[in-house]
């Protein structure tokens, strides 16, 4: 069984919800990314989402755009990120998902991408500019290797699209809480609970909610309706803010621990 499926099974038994933490790989260096992932694992994060930096991140707000730029300036490449996961697998079995735009994956080669990922301990992939409609080849390759393809749903998705995305998703469904780009927001959208209920009417796969989530209170609220909560920009901001501090890793760890505790209550 894939590490992601196993994780959701485990959490279900404990009646807990998953806290999924996003960070851009290579932001402040890949060795920093490694330290942060291990710290996140110790602090109770359930699943790691590693951002693969891209030159033109159209679904991202200023925070993740800036982290992408920083990582690219350091020369971070997809192959190095996969290597990092291989290295991480010596010390942790936390599920790791790559999240990145399609072109670097396409350039890497779909078949090679899936086989290198699956062979080195990457559990799945989220590609925000690759809807299932264009993902036949990826899904076919992923099936061969028990590799999770996580597709997204949004507030504008119709029942037809919910059915399609649910059918093609493996691991979980990523529900984008709002119409917009990534970035912390003060409030959760009012329609969130009803939208998640709508998805659940058509799908029995775990639903995780992301975009705009930054506070433990918001995490608690989402944990009441979905199987997991994804926090991205807020963590990236925390990393950026503390990067020059001596106890940098610990400070970011303190922050994600609060989020993890909120999702496990």
């Amino acid at each position: 069984m894939n590490r992601i499926d196993k994780k959701f099974k485990e959490l279900k038994k404990k009646k807990q919800k998953a806290l999924i933490a996003f960070l851009t790989a290579g932001d402040f260096g890949l060795s920093t990314t490694k330290k942060l992932v291990l710290e996140f694992d110790r602090r109770g994060v359930d699943i790691i989402e590693l951002g693969v930096p891209f030159s033109d991140p159209v679904a991202d707000g200023p925070t993740i755009q800036a982290s992408s730029e920083r990582a690219l300036k350091r020369g971070t490449k997809l192959k190095d990120i996969i290597k990092l996961v291989k290295d991480l697998r010596r010390s942790t079995c936390i599920p790791v998902i790559l999240m990145g735009y399609y072109n670097p994956v396409l350039k890497y080669g779909l078949k090679k991408f899936v086989s290198d990922c699956a062979g080195n301990g990457v559990d799945g992939v989220i590609i925000p500019d690759l809807p299932p409609d264009e993902a036949e080849d990826l899904v076919a390759e992923a099936k061969k290797r028990d590799f999770a393809t996580i597709f997204l749903l949004s507030p504008t998705s119709t029942p037809d699209r919910i059915r399609l995305v649910s059918k093609k998703s493996k691991g979980f469904i990523y529900y984008v809480s709002l119409t917009g780009i990534t970035g912390a927001r003060a409030n959760l959208p009012k329609e969130l609970a009803s939208r998640v209920r709508l998805i659940k009417r058509y799908s029995d796969k775990p639903v995780c909610v992301g975009f705009g989530v930054s506070r433990p209170g918001q995490v608690r609220e989402i944990a009441k309706m979905a199987e997991g909560v994804i926090v991205g920009s807020a963590i990236v901001k925390e990393i950026e803010k503390n990067s020059k501090r001596k106890d940098f890793i610990k400070l970011v760890g303190d922050y994600v621990q609060k989020l993890a505790e909120a999702s496990h209550q």
Partner: peptide, 12 residues
Amino acid sequence: GGKYVPETLMTA
């Protein structure tokens, strides 16, 4: 060609 866009735009 094709439609390589975030899900939010697919319905539009």
